[in-house]
Structure formats: structure tokens, C-alpha cells
């Protein structure tokens, strides 16, 4: 038997890991900070909400620090540029490997409706989680982990411990 087709044609995981580690090292050497992604989602969400209801967003205790008068535009931030790079780099990688394929990633017996509903629920939980933890797998687990930041390791253990424990209950969407 072969590996499922969605898992074929990728780099050896250790090669990919060392390459990812070198990108992270480059980021620390150049910028003093690691990688990140969720911060850009916050800033984009804030700008979108601000275009609809500027006053409500400027008065919101969480968003208002992004809209200080005289401050830079919320999107003029390194994390937003990094995420633009992620989209670009990912797209170039997909195209050059001829792997672009519209589909819904799900287990062989899981329905599309179930999978997309759970993707949404998971996105909401993940979004809330990143704001309590001040980062995600890249900003906290990888970047904080590589610099041995205590809170980042606590976050990483909580993420993987919870996911292993909860996996049983959502096994139907993946099996």
C-alpha cells in the first residue's frame, strides 16, 4: 500500500524541519523576532471592522491600541508583511510543484458539510485561543520555543496535550 495521495511528493520531514529552522534563525538574526501569523489576522480583522463601524472599534478596549491618533496604519506592520510573504511563498511552492487542487481535506468517510462546519468551529476556537496566548504555533510554539521562553513551552504543551486528548472525539472527520 502507498501513502495517501495528499501526503505524497513532499520533502523529507527532517529536511523540511531544518529548512524551517533556518528560516526562523534568519528571522531572529535579522529582526530579533521570530515568525508569526496570527497577529496579522488580528490587524486585518480590526481594519475590516473599522471600515464598517469606526467609532465602535476605536472605543473597543482590545482594538483601540491599533488606532491611536498619530500612530501607523494597523497594516503597516512587520507581521502583516510576513503573512503577505507566506501567501506568496506558499503559492509559488504550490504552483512549482503543480499541487494546486480545490478540495476539502477530510477523512474518507466524512461529509463535506461536517468537515466545513468543524473547520469553522475550530477557526473560532483557534482565533480566541491565539488572543489569550498572544500567538500561535509559529509565533509562540516555534519562535518562543526556539528561544526557550517559558510561557511558549507552556502554550505548546497545552496545545498538543489538548489536541491528543480531544482527537478521539472528532475522529470521524479524519478517519
Amino acid at each position: 500500500m502507498q501513502a495517501p495521495d495528499y501526503a505524497q511528493g513532499f520533502w523529507n520531514p527532517y529536511v523540511a524541519g531544518v529548512a524551517l529552522g533556518l528560516v526562523l534563525l534568519m528571522s531572529f538574526y535579522l529582526m530579533g523576532t521570530g515568525l508569526g501569523a496570527s497577529g496579522a489576522v488580528v490587524r486585518t480583522a480590526a481594519v475590516v471592522a473599522h471600515s464598517v463601524a469606526p467609532e465602535a472599534v476605536e472605543q473597543n478596549e482590545f482594538f483601540k491600541s491599533l488606532f491611536k491618533s498619530g500612530g501607523k496604519h494597523p497594516l503597516m506592520n512587520r507581521i502583516v508583511f510576513m503573512v503577505l510573504g507566506i501567501f506568496l511563498g506558499g503559492f509559488v511552492a504550490v504552483l512549482t510543484a503543480r499541487r494546486f487542487r480545490p478540495e476539502v481535506g477530510r477523512g474518507p468517510t466524512a461529509g463535506v458539510g461536517l468537515r466545513l462546519s468543524l473547520a469553522f468551529v475550530g477557526g473560532v476556537l483557534g482565533g480566541v485561543g491565539t488572543r489569550f496566548a498572544l500567538g500561535c504555533t509559529s509565533g509562540q510554539a516555534l519562535s518562543g520555543g526556539a528561544t526557550m521562553a517559558a510561557g511558549s513551552w507552556a502554550f505548546m504543551l497545552a496545545v498538543f496535550g489538548t489536541a491528543f486528548a480531544a482527537a478521539y472525539f472528532v475522529r470521524r472527520q479524519w478517519s
Binding site: A37, G122, G129, C136, S138, F155, V159, T162, A166
Partner: peptide
């Protein structure tokens, strides 16, 4: 945040990046 994020990861199938 890690517990919520872990649930989001296994339920949603992704992390932000």
C-alpha cells in the same frame, strides 16, 4: 489559550499559518 488553540487545531484541522 493553548487549550482553546489545541481544540481549534484538532477540530478545525489547521493553525493560522
Amino acid at each position: 489559550g493553548g487549550i482553546l488553540f489545541g481544540l481549534g487545531f484538532i477540530i478545525g484541522g489547521y493553525c493560522p499559518g
